[in-house]
């Protein structure tokens, strides 16, 4: 799984972040990553990466890195 695809998903929801900021981004470090933007982000990732992010897993995917590792292992 190409990391840039996931970065582009984040950029759609958080257009003001740089690539580096996205790589280090988490729900605790970035206030704009709230429940509403999380819903959008989830839909975008499912759309663009062709994966399903089940609710029971979503709660634990709180950073870019965690999401990337989950998708990489799934695909």
């Amino acid at each position: 799984m190409d990391k840039q695809v996931l970065i582009n998903c984040f950029k759609l929801v958080f257009p003001l972040l740089t690539d580096d900021e996205i790589l280090r981004c988490s729900t605790s470090s970035f206030p704009e990553w709230d429940s509403v933007s999380n819903i959008q982000l989830t839909c975008i990732i499912e759309e663009e990466c062709g994966v399903d992010l089940p609710d029971d897993i979503l709660e634990s995917l709180t950073s870019f890195d965690l999401i990337f590792r989950y998708i990489r292992d799934k695909v």
Partner: peptide, 15 residues
Amino acid sequence: MKLSEALGIINRSRT
């Protein structure tokens, strides 16, 4: 239209 396309259109208009 996909959600990603919709967000892309919105982001391009930011300026």
